[in-house]
Protein backbone atom coordinates (compact mmCIF):
# COMPACT_ATOMS: atom_id res chain seq x y z
CA UNK A 1 0.00 0.00 0.00
CA UNK A 2 1.41 3.36 -0.97
CA UNK A 3 0.92 6.69 0.74
CA UNK A 4 -1.06 7.92 -2.25
CA UNK A 5 -3.67 5.17 -2.16
CA UNK A 6 -4.03 5.60 1.59
CA UNK A 7 -4.89 9.25 1.13
CA UNK A 8 -7.16 8.70 -1.85
CA UNK A 9 -9.54 6.37 -0.02
CA UNK A 10 -11.42 6.84 3.22
CA UNK A 11 -12.51 3.97 5.47
CA UNK A 12 -16.10 2.74 5.01
CA UNK A 13 -17.42 3.87 8.38
CA UNK A 14 -21.09 3.62 7.37
CA UNK A 15 -23.34 1.64 9.70
CA UNK A 16 -24.03 -1.30 7.40
CA UNK A 17 -20.41 -2.25 6.80
CA UNK A 18 -19.46 -1.79 10.44
CA UNK A 19 -22.38 -3.97 11.56
CA UNK A 20 -21.37 -6.75 9.18
CA UNK A 21 -17.71 -6.60 10.13
CA UNK A 22 -18.58 -6.45 13.81
CA UNK A 23 -20.69 -9.60 13.48
CA UNK A 24 -17.80 -11.51 11.88
CA UNK A 25 -15.33 -10.16 14.44
CA UNK A 26 -17.59 -11.28 17.28
CA UNK A 27 -17.85 -14.76 15.85
CA UNK A 28 -14.07 -14.95 15.59
CA UNK A 29 -13.52 -13.62 19.13
CA UNK A 30 -16.21 -15.80 20.71
CA UNK A 31 -14.80 -18.98 19.20
CA UNK A 32 -11.43 -18.09 20.58
CA UNK A 33 -12.41 -16.83 24.03
CA UNK A 34 -15.61 -18.80 24.76
CA UNK A 35 -16.88 -15.85 26.76
CA UNK A 36 -19.38 -13.49 25.14
CA UNK A 37 -18.59 -10.62 27.49
CA UNK A 38 -14.85 -10.81 26.92
CA UNK A 39 -15.41 -11.19 23.17
CA UNK A 40 -17.61 -8.06 23.07
CA UNK A 41 -14.98 -6.09 25.01
CA UNK A 42 -12.19 -7.20 22.73
CA UNK A 43 -14.11 -6.39 19.54
CA UNK A 44 -15.02 -2.99 20.97
CA UNK A 45 -11.38 -2.28 21.77
CA UNK A 46 -10.30 -3.37 18.29
CA UNK A 47 -12.95 -1.12 16.69
CA UNK A 48 -11.79 1.84 18.77
CA UNK A 49 -8.15 1.18 17.91
CA UNK A 50 -9.13 0.93 14.25
CA UNK A 51 -10.96 4.25 14.32
CA UNK A 52 -8.05 5.98 16.03
CA UNK A 53 -5.56 4.57 13.55
CA UNK A 54 -7.79 4.97 10.48
CA UNK A 55 -5.20 7.13 8.68
CA UNK A 56 -2.96 4.12 8.25
CA UNK A 57 -5.58 2.10 6.47
CA UNK A 58 -5.62 1.85 2.68
CA UNK A 59 -8.54 0.73 0.55
CA UNK A 60 -11.83 -0.98 1.20
CA UNK A 61 -10.74 -4.55 0.55
CA UNK A 62 -7.88 -4.10 3.00
CA UNK A 63 -10.19 -2.63 5.63
CA UNK A 64 -11.63 -5.86 6.98
CA UNK A 65 -8.25 -7.62 6.87
CA UNK A 66 -6.76 -4.76 8.81
CA UNK A 67 -9.53 -4.79 11.44
CA UNK A 68 -9.12 -8.54 11.87
CA UNK A 69 -5.37 -8.13 12.26
CA UNK A 70 -5.96 -5.66 15.10
CA UNK A 71 -8.43 -8.03 16.76
CA UNK A 72 -6.12 -11.01 16.32
CA UNK A 73 -3.23 -9.17 17.97
CA UNK A 74 -5.44 -8.18 20.89
CA UNK A 75 -6.54 -11.76 21.42
CA UNK A 76 -2.96 -13.06 21.17
CA UNK A 77 -1.87 -10.53 23.82
CA UNK A 78 -4.76 -11.57 26.04
CA UNK A 79 -3.90 -15.26 25.67
CA UNK A 80 -0.20 -14.71 26.32
CA UNK A 81 -1.06 -12.79 29.47
CA UNK A 82 -3.38 -15.49 30.78
CA UNK A 83 -1.68 -18.63 29.43
CA UNK A 84 0.51 -19.34 32.41
CA UNK A 85 -2.40 -19.04 34.76
CA UNK A 86 -4.51 -21.34 32.56
CA UNK A 87 -1.91 -24.08 32.22
CA UNK A 88 -1.17 -24.19 35.95
CA UNK A 89 -4.62 -23.99 37.43
CA UNK A 90 -6.75 -25.91 35.02
CA UNK A 91 -6.60 -29.43 36.39
CA UNK A 92 -10.31 -29.81 35.74
CA UNK A 93 -9.76 -29.04 32.07
CA UNK A 94 -7.12 -31.74 31.90
CA UNK A 95 -9.52 -34.29 33.29
CA UNK A 96 -11.95 -33.08 30.65
CA UNK A 97 -9.37 -33.69 27.93
CA UNK A 98 -8.95 -37.28 29.04
CA UNK A 99 -12.70 -37.76 29.01
CA UNK A 100 -12.77 -36.25 25.52
CA UNK A 101 -10.16 -38.72 24.30
CA UNK A 102 -12.29 -41.71 25.14
CA UNK A 103 -15.30 -40.23 23.35
CA UNK A 104 -13.36 -39.89 20.12
CA UNK A 105 -11.90 -43.39 20.41
CA UNK A 106 -15.48 -44.61 20.13
CA UNK A 107 -15.43 -43.60 16.45
CA UNK A 108 -13.26 -46.63 15.72
CA UNK A 109 -13.90 -50.33 16.34
CA UNK A 110 -11.46 -52.50 18.28
CA UNK A 111 -9.13 -53.16 15.36
CA UNK A 112 -8.79 -49.44 14.75
CA UNK A 113 -11.03 -49.09 11.70
CA UNK A 114 -14.06 -46.80 11.35
CA UNK A 115 -17.33 -47.88 12.87
CA UNK A 116 -19.75 -48.15 9.92
CA UNK A 117 -21.89 -45.28 11.27
CA UNK A 118 -18.93 -42.96 11.73
CA UNK A 119 -17.08 -43.59 8.47
CA UNK A 120 -16.62 -40.25 6.66
CA UNK A 121 -18.92 -39.93 3.67
CA UNK A 122 -18.59 -37.72 0.59
CA UNK A 123 -19.39 -34.04 1.17
CA UNK A 124 -21.03 -32.30 -1.73
CA UNK A 125 -19.70 -28.85 -2.60
CA UNK A 126 -18.39 -27.53 0.74
CA UNK A 127 -17.47 -24.21 -0.89
CA UNK A 128 -21.17 -23.54 -1.52
CA UNK A 129 -21.87 -24.18 2.17
CA UNK A 130 -19.40 -21.44 3.10
CA UNK A 131 -21.73 -18.92 1.46
CA UNK A 132 -24.61 -19.82 3.76
CA UNK A 133 -25.12 -18.12 7.11
CA UNK A 134 -26.72 -21.32 8.48
CA UNK A 135 -23.50 -23.27 7.87
CA UNK A 136 -21.56 -20.89 10.10
CA UNK A 137 -24.16 -21.21 12.85
CA UNK A 138 -23.62 -24.98 12.75
CA UNK A 139 -19.86 -24.44 12.73
CA UNK A 140 -20.21 -22.31 15.90
CA UNK A 141 -22.24 -25.05 17.58
CA UNK A 142 -19.70 -27.72 16.63
CA UNK A 143 -16.82 -25.63 17.91
CA UNK A 144 -18.69 -25.15 21.19
CA UNK A 145 -19.27 -28.88 21.47
CA UNK A 146 -15.53 -29.51 21.68
CA UNK A 147 -14.12 -29.78 25.21
CA UNK A 148 -12.77 -26.36 26.17
CA UNK A 149 -9.09 -27.32 26.42
CA UNK A 150 -9.21 -28.92 22.97
CA UNK A 151 -10.98 -25.95 21.39
CA UNK A 152 -8.45 -23.56 22.93
CA UNK A 153 -5.46 -25.30 21.33
CA UNK A 154 -7.28 -25.69 18.01
CA UNK A 155 -8.33 -22.05 17.76
CA UNK A 156 -4.84 -20.87 18.77
CA UNK A 157 -3.51 -22.95 15.89
CA UNK A 158 -6.13 -22.30 13.19
CA UNK A 159 -7.67 -18.93 14.02
CA UNK A 160 -4.65 -17.14 15.48
CA UNK A 161 -2.20 -19.12 13.32
CA UNK A 162 0.31 -19.60 16.11
CA UNK A 163 3.02 -22.21 15.53
CA UNK A 164 2.54 -25.49 17.37
CA UNK A 165 5.82 -24.97 19.23
CA UNK A 166 4.61 -21.64 20.60
CA UNK A 167 1.24 -23.07 21.66
CA UNK A 168 2.95 -25.92 23.52
CA UNK A 169 5.30 -23.51 25.26
CA UNK A 170 2.50 -21.10 26.25
CA UNK A 171 0.33 -23.86 27.68
CA UNK A 172 3.19 -25.90 29.12
CA UNK A 173 2.36 -29.10 27.24
CA UNK A 174 4.59 -31.40 25.16
CA UNK A 175 4.48 -31.14 21.38
CA UNK A 176 3.17 -34.68 21.18
CA UNK A 177 0.29 -33.75 23.48
CA UNK A 178 -0.31 -30.71 21.30
CA UNK A 179 -0.53 -32.93 18.17
CA UNK A 180 -2.93 -35.29 19.91
CA UNK A 181 -5.17 -32.42 21.02
CA UNK A 182 -5.25 -30.91 17.51
CA UNK A 183 -6.06 -34.34 16.08
CA UNK A 184 -8.95 -34.73 18.55
CA UNK A 185 -10.24 -31.29 17.64
CA UNK A 186 -10.28 -32.16 13.93
CA UNK A 187 -11.93 -35.55 14.54
CA UNK A 188 -14.63 -33.97 16.69
CA UNK A 189 -15.29 -30.98 14.48
CA UNK A 190 -15.45 -33.08 11.32
CA UNK A 191 -17.82 -35.61 12.89
CA UNK A 192 -20.11 -32.84 14.13
CA UNK A 193 -20.19 -31.02 10.77
CA UNK A 194 -20.98 -34.25 8.96
CA UNK A 195 -23.80 -35.12 11.35
CA UNK A 196 -25.32 -31.68 11.65
CA UNK A 197 -24.75 -30.22 8.22
CA UNK A 198 -23.46 -32.34 5.37
CA UNK A 199 -25.60 -35.38 6.09
CA UNK A 200 -28.74 -33.25 6.21
CA UNK A 201 -27.79 -31.62 2.90
CA UNK A 202 -27.60 -34.95 1.16
CA UNK A 203 -31.04 -36.10 2.27
Amino acid sequence: MTEVSAQALSPPWDDASITAIRRDMLRFARMQLRDSGAAEDMVQEALMAAMTGAKRFAGRSAFKTWMFAILRNKIVDHIRASAREISRSDLAARAEVDAGLEDFDALFEQRGHWNPDDRPSTWSDPEASFEQEAFWTVFDVCMNNLPEHIARVYTMRELLELETTEICAELGITSNNCFVILHRARLGLRECLENRWFQGERR
Binding site: F28, F68, P126, F130, E133
Partner: peptide, 12 residues
Protein backbone atom coordinates in the same frame (compact mmCIF):
# COMPACT_ATOMS: atom_id res chain seq x y z
CA UNK B 1 -10.52 -23.48 4.32
CA UNK B 2 -13.31 -22.78 6.80
CA UNK B 3 -10.94 -21.51 9.48
CA UNK B 4 -9.19 -19.36 6.86
CA UNK B 5 -12.60 -17.82 6.08
CA UNK B 6 -13.13 -17.11 9.78
CA UNK B 7 -9.75 -15.41 10.01
CA UNK B 8 -10.64 -13.16 7.09
CA UNK B 9 -14.14 -12.46 8.40
CA UNK B 10 -15.49 -14.01 5.23
CA UNK B 11 -18.34 -16.05 6.69
CA UNK B 12 -21.24 -15.45 4.28
Amino acid sequence: KATARLREGNTG
